[in-house]
């Protein structure tokens, strides 16, 4: 293992980097869509929401909490049958996306619920006082006001999902995490291990930077 570091990085780290990027982008996107949907239902059915519904809220609340209390590694293993049913295999980057979405959606749902609840309750009253429908109050008023907070939270969630992909790597997903462990740590190759750490640091900085840019634009 005495090859040129640059060549090492191009041949081993680069594909892993692209895999990680792929997993993060796809998993975050799907989780955001599902999480947004669940978050809105939680917001609406909460006891002082627009249409309180104790049973719907309770069920969603328990399910969200349950999934979130799984350690990610265990979640990956325990939903293998579901993963197989969806993507046909339990190994590889596509297979990793399933548990990533499983873990990511409830997480984002909570963040969205929180962002919506932070919107001035008075605005909901304003909406009602003009005779707006619930859908209009949610989308034209509450969600619209919550956009900056939602952007902040999704940035935060993206970084968290990036961290989680490293763990998904240990169950055959590939990506930067797996490469850092197998090629770096277990092979005593410091170049790869620390190289990947540096790449991850830069990646997190980039995600934050983009998030901040969008936030500034939206506020």
């Amino acid at each position: 293992m005495n090859r040129d570091p640059l060549q090492l990085i191009m041949k081993i780290v680069m594909p892993a980097f692209l895999d990680t990027l792929y997993m993060v982008v796809i998993a975050t996107t799907i989780s955001t869509i599902i999480g947004f949907f669940i978050g809105i239902i939680l917001y609406v059915t909460d006891k002082d929401g627009l249409r309180p519904n104790a049973s719907i809220y309770k069920v969603l609340d328990v399910v969200v909490n349950m999934i979130r209390s799984f350690p990610f590694i265990i979640l990956v293993v325990s939903i293998i049958p579901i993963t197989r049913a969806i993507v046909g295999t339990s190994i590889g980057k596509n297979a990793a996306i399933v548990p990533l979405v499983f873990a990511g959606s409830p997480f984002i749902a909570r963040l969205i619920e929180g962002s919506l609840k932070d919107v001035d309750k008075g605005l909901v009253e304003v909406g009602k006082s003009f005779g707006l429908s619930h859908t209009q109050i949610i989308f034209k008023v509450v969600v619209k006001e919550a956009v900056p907070a939602i952007i902040n939270n999704i940035t935060f969630a993206t970084v968290a999902i990036l961290g989680t992909t490293a763990m998904a790597g240990t169950v055959g997903a590939g990506g930067l995490g797996a490469t850092a462990i197998t090629y770096g740590y277990q092979n005593f190759n410091d170049t790869i291990m620390y190289g990947i750490v540096v790449i991850l640091i830069i990646l997190v900085q980039l995600i934050q930077l983009v998030g901040r840019k969008i936030y500034r634009k939206k506020i």
Binding site: G122, L123, E125, V126, S129, F130, G131, K144, V147, I219
Partner: peptide, 21 residues
């Protein structure tokens, strides 16, 4: 009820304006 509320405007202590609009 919505049609009815249309005929009644309301203002509040803390103005309740949308900050992003």
């Amino acid at each position: 009820l919505r049609e009815f509320r249309k005929n009644i405007g309301m203002i509040f202590q803390n103005f309740s304006l949308m900050q992003r609009r």
